[in-house]
């Protein structure tokens, strides 16, 4: 019953987020700050993880090709498909649920605990629009992060495969080009956009409606991470079935 109540409350929150906008000259600065915190601040971890996971995917694929009948370009092909279809959009989003999601929940939750949200409301400010809307807009740039992740994942795979002498550069590049479907890029970025919205709103929901003190802020951040991950995985399944199934 509580889940159903939260589900309804989440959509009521979204309605409020998009109503009674804050003045543009204030909103503009809030959006820039959120881009700095949520997008720019996440690049380091995404770059690091993508590069090495791409390398691991390439090595694992190469090590599992036993039969001489399987062409070596499959290493490049598998790296491309794994990184573009799943690793970059989905698993990077799960990582972001931990990094960005916890940050959003704890920062909004702390504002709730210290009555800063009440202060906004008392002043007549639409606190949901003020706090959540800039995060949604900032995360519209999330596909750029994922594009970087895709590029570096494949680069990591290429370097690992070539430097480890699992395949040649030409074979790897052939694998990258073979049977390429541009729709897969659309699919990956469509998923990314959906995940960006989830990353901005679900952690905000748990931060905004939390009750209690400092301990509860920590609990809310954990709950937010769990639910953001669960929703990302469910939406991933549904979008995959709808777009590729």
């Amino acid at each position: 019953m509580q889940y159903l109540k939260n589900f309804g409350k989440y959509f009521l929150m979204l309605r409020e987020v998009f109503s009674k906008p804050t003045k543009w000259n204030i909103m503009k600065n809030l959006i820039l700050k959120e881009i700095d915190d949520l997008i720019y601040g996440s690049l380091g971890i995404i770059i690091f993880i993508s590069f090495f996971i791409g390398g691991v995917v390439a090595i694992q694929t190469a090590l599992n090709i036993d039969s001489p009948l399987i062409p070596k370009y499959l290493v490049g092909f598998t790296t491309r498909q794994s990184v573009i279809l799943e690793f970059s959009p989905t698993f990077c989003s799960i990582i972001m649920a931990g990094k960005v999601g916890s940050y959003i929940t704890s920062s909004i939750g702390t504002m709730r605990v210290t009555e800063q949200i009440d202060a906004l409301e008392v002043m007549g400010v639409n606190s949901l629009n003020y706090l959540v809307f800039p995060k949604i807009i900032a995360l519209l740039l999330y596909p750029f992060v994922i594009a970087i992740s895709m590029y570096l994942g494949i680069l990591g795979g290429w370097l690992a495969a070539v430097m480890g002498e699992y395949t040649t550069s030409a074979e790897f590049v052939k694998g990258l080009q073979i049977d390429f479907k541009p729709f897969h890029i659309f699919y990956a970025f469509a998923k990314t956009m959906a995940f960006a919205f989830i990353l901005a709103t679900i952690p905000s929901f748990y931060g905004y409606y939390m009750k209690g003190g400092a301990l509860e802020v920590g609990k809310a951040a954990t709950t937010s991470f769990v639910w953001t991950s669960v929703v990302i995985i469910i939406v991933n399944y549904l979008l995959t079935q709808m777009l590729l199934g």
């Binding site: 210290t114 009555e115 009440d118 202060a119 008392v122 002043m123 007549g124």
Partner: peptide, 13 residues
């Protein structure tokens, strides 16, 4: 109406 109000919170907020 809230724009006509000022509030001093317990923890200053």
């Amino acid at each position: 109406l809230r724009k006509e109000m000022g509030m001093v919170f317990q923890g200053s907020a």
